[in-house]
Amino acid sequence: MSARALGLGPAFRQAAFAPKFARNQIARRTVQTQSLPPSAAEGILNKQRLQRPSSPHFTIYQPQLTWYGSIAHRGTGAGLSVLLYGYALAYLVAPETFSSANVVEIVAGLPDAVKYAGKAVLAAPFAFHSFNGLRHLSWDVGKFLTVKGAYSSGYAVLGATAVTTAALVLM
C-alpha cells in the first residue's frame, strides 16, 4: 500500500525535508492557544468583515435568464431614460440647435446603414423594457410567480422583443 493511498504523503515529505530546527519550533507553537478578552471579539469580527468579498459575486454565478433579464431591464430602462433626460436638457439649453426640424434634417442626411443600426439600437431596449415591464406588472398581481412561470414568461418577452424590434426597424 502506497503512502499516497494512506494519505501519509504530506507527513512523510515534511518529516524528510523540513529542517529539524524549524520543525520543532512549529510543532511547539501549534498547540498553544491565546487567551483573548471578550472586548477583542468586535475587533476580530471587523477584521473578517474587511476581508469579505463584495456581494453579490457576479462572476461566479451561472448566467441565467432570471437575473440577466433583471439586469437588462434596469440597463435598458436607464439607457432610454438617459436619452430622454439628455435630450430634454439639451433642448432646454439650446432650443435652436436641438429643435425637431434640425434633428430631423441631420438624421435624414445619414446613410441608410446608420439609420437602420440606430433604429435597432433604440428599438431593442424599448421593446425589451416594455414587454419585460408587462412581465413585472404581472408578477406584481401574482401571476407567473414560479420558476417555470419566470422562464416561460422570460422566453415570451425575448421572442416578443425580437419580433417587435424587427418590425420597428422596418417601419
Binding site: 430634454a88 433642448y91 432646454l92 432650443p95 425637431s100 417601419m171
Partner: peptide, 25 residues
C-alpha cells in the same frame, strides 16, 4: 428635464410627433 419637456411640447412639435418624424426621416 420637466421644464425642458414642457418647453419642447409647447414651442416645438412635442415628443410623440418628434419621435415619429425622426423614425421616418
Amino acid at each position: 428635464v420637466l421644464v425642458g419637456v414642457y418647453q419642447f411640447n409647447t414651442n416645438d412639435v412635442g415628443l410623440t410627433e418628434f419621435i415619429a418624424k425622426v423614425w421616418t426621416a
